[in-house]
Design a protein around this nucleic acid. Structure first.
Ligand SMILES: [Mn+2]
Ligand SMILES: [Mn+2]
Ligand SMILES: [Zn+2]
Ligand SMILES: [Zn+2]
Lengths: 153, 153
DNA sequence: AATAAAAATGTAATCATTACAATTTTTATT
DNA sequence: AATAAAAATTGTAATGATTACATTTTTATT
């Protein structure tokens, strides 16, 4: 696996932010960041661990958790609690929602502007974070299911 | 603690539903249901356990989990994944959102119509469940914080 | 009362996450 | 370059929520 494209703007912005916060750009941290920037969509800590283990076998899970916590702390990453007892991490911190397919397990991004929701009812409240998620079956899985049906009957 | 007001419409509708599904209205199940209908807002399995333990000391946690699972299965209760590694249960299954105060830990209900959101982008997807939650500090906690500030300085 | 089915229990196992002490690496200072 | 201090990383053990499962208790049916 080749490292995160250095031209990846999200990655480079993130490293800048780390510098700003006086957090060292250690190899391990950059690997975790890289993993979040690459194809992996909303990975769990364990998925990051498995993914990086081939490349960096000595990387510990504790370091992954430590890194994720610091990334969350400085606002470069946000956590998703869509499934019970499984925290997922999202490098995209801009306002958006999610769809979790209960068949294939994938988490899709959903473009939604959440900023304006519930303004009235929550006036007087200090809102730090907005999350919207849907659960169901994605298009692809629905099509597959129908295909299988046709074959079976 | 007196049992759930039998006139509580949500409670009685729930027992009807249980009957319809041929699930026995055992004492233990009704206690869990009662707990969900009463003041407790979005309790965890453990909070239900602690709450009922005084009254029914022999009630086991496994039974609480079993009951919650059956209630979720027949759609009488829904799960909330607002905090990591802590599933909360909500007897109110109608469309609404939540606000989790990071100071006092309370989960507030937020009236929001979610049905219409992301219709376009998720066309072709089968949506089973919609969840919206906010995190931040509630009004009361904000006021308290300011009060304390005044006292301290 | 006998029997079968359903419900409930307690204990042990699992899984994600955290705590923490020990070790290694990096950085700053001499 | 040698040394000391600070930061990062590691491995192991602990925690906490949830589940698995075998055993016991309760309930309904004959
Ligand atoms: Mn996302
Ligand atoms: Mn609610
Ligand atoms: Zn799918
Ligand atoms: Zn509060």
């Amino acid at each position: 696996m080749i490292g995160c494209d250095p031209m990846n703007s999200r990655y480079s912005r993130a490293t800048q932010q780390l510098k700003k916060h006086n957090i060292r750009l250690s190899n391990r941290r950059l690997k975790v960041l890289e993993c979040l920037c690459n194809k992996l969509d909303h990975p769990t800590a364990d998925q990051i661990f498995v993914n990086l283990h081939k490349e960096v076998p000595s990387l510990s899970k504790t370091t992954i958790y430590n890194t994720l916590h610091t990334l969350v702390e400085i606002g470069l990453v946000r956590t998703l609690n869509i499934e019970a007892n499984k925290t997922r991490y999202d490098i995209i911190t801009e306002d958006h929602g999610h769809f979790g397919c209960q068949t294939c397990g994938r988490i899709f991004n959903v473009n939604i502007e959440l900023e304006s929701l519930a303004k009235g009812e929550l006036s007087g409240f200090n809102i730090w974070e907005r999350n919207l998620y849907f659960k169901g079956i994605c298009q692809k899985c629905l099509l597959n299911k129908n295909k299988n049906r046709e074959v079976v009957y």
